[in-house]
Amino acid sequence: MKEESRVMDREAMDKSLERIAHEIAEHIGPSDEVAIIGIKNRGAYLARRIADKIERIAKKKLSVGALDITLYRDDLTQVAAQPIVHATEIDFSIDNKKIILVDDVLFTGRTIRCALDALIDFGRPGRIQLAVLVDRGHRELPIKADYVGKNVPTGINEVVEVRLEEADGKDEIVLCRNKV
């Protein structure tokens, strides 16, 4: 049996992304070239949304990309089902750019480690920052987010599910735990 409790609804999620976008926009200098790169799959949708908001707030055109990190994972043989390799879509140079890496949930930090490795294979960014919708704790690596939508304290066996319109038909975040 799975028990779910809702952490965020559609409205709260939009507010949260709006706030992240404002924070990022505040830190964009006049000479900064900024690119928003989301980690597939859900991070890529969030990156698109945040980029749209920043473009509106800062009146500045951003490059937007999507990163597939499957080939960089260190736990490939530990996950039950084999993940599908999707294409990375970064059709611009990341050299010297300020990169905002976007993911839905920050947990152990291992995904971000993979993403950093993958990104650096594309060039030499001027700076990389991290934006996440949810930070649920339990880090296994020294990684910290620069922009956080919401801190959600969780138990190690709980699962934070971010559902997005683009992938799941509706926007919400739920905390799932197995009922004993």
Binding site: Y72, I84, V85, A87, T88
Partner: peptide, 20 residues
């Protein structure tokens, strides 16, 4: 064929190598 499409992107990069 789908997976090959993803790998094709890798072969167009400047660094054409992944640690898989």
């Amino acid at each position: 064929l789908y997976t090959a499409g993803s790998f094709k992107e890798v072969t167009t990069r400047q660094i054409k190598k992944v640690p898989a």
